[in-house]
């Protein structure tokens, strides 16, 4: 399962990267390529649902909700290794990643191999995403919201931003998990539903506040 997830996320990331590269890697093109890729994978997912047996279908639907109940202790080593190895792999690139915030041209002029760094970052983000999503399903919006909060707190120096974003994500997740329990007594609402309900208004808030930042 984690390997299948990794293969799929790397394939999706490669698709987004490939398309974006054709048109100069701007944020707008990347977002559009991301949306197009999302549609592609959603239709593949619909096909899987259509062809699945009733038992498997139930599993898929539950996975799509996103739930921490699907994360037993036995999966912890894989998640932990992914979680700690990924930032470690980027630890020597922190200033180069910070330099990317000045734009590709300036980063390149400072001696950053922009292409190589971006491919590396894409792969590591894909691995991180796969490591989480394979076990708990699609828990959305934290990936979007947590870095924004972190950036507001510590700025864009990746030495602080990266760990702070992880910390913000963890705190939000713990908060959402607590919130998901008392809503319906006796059962636990899948956390993915809670994060979307809380996350979407927050996202709208970010857009309205006009802070034009790269997502």
């Amino acid at each position: 399962m984690p390997l299948a997830a990794l293969t799929s996320t790397v394939a999706a990331a490669a698709l987004v990267y490939g398309f974006s590269q054709l048109r100069g890697m701007s944020a707008e093109v990347m977002v559009l390529a991301g949306i197009a890729t999302l549609f592609l994978f959603q239709s593949l997912q619909s096909m899987a649902q259509y062809l699945a047996s009733p038992e498997a279908l139930q599993e898929i639907v539950f996975w799509l909700f996103g739930s921490l109940l699907k994360a037993p202790w036995s999966n912890l080593p894989i998640v932990a290794v992914t979680l700690f190895a990924s930032p470690l792999a980027l630890s020597t690139d922190l200033w180069r990643l910070t330099a990317l915030r000045l734009g590709d041209d300036r980063a390149a002029a400072l001696g950053v191999n922009v292409r190589r760094l971006r491919i590396k970052a894409f792969f590591i983000v894909a691995a991180l995403t796969a490591g989480a999503v394979a076990f708990v399903g699609t828990i959305g919006f934290f990936g979007l919201v947590a870095p924004h909060i972190a950036r507001g707190l510590v700025g864009e120096d990746q030495r602080y931003l990266m760990p702070m974003a992880a910390l913000c994500g963890a705190i939000l997740m713990a908060g959402a998990s607590i919130l998901s329990k008392p809503i319906s007594p006796g059962s636990v609402i899948p956390i993915g539903i809670v994060t979307a309900v809380v996350g979407v208004p927050f996202l709208f808030g970010l857009i309205i506040s006009g802070r034009r930042r790269q997502w």
Binding site: W95, T98, R101, L102, G103, L110, G155, R213
Partner: peptide, 15 residues
């Protein structure tokens, strides 16, 4: 569109 601080930008010169 960056919110790096001015000092950080200068430091990046010695990347």
């Amino acid at each position: 569109a960056s919110s790096l601080t001015v000092l950080e930008v200068v430091l990046l010169g010695r990347l």
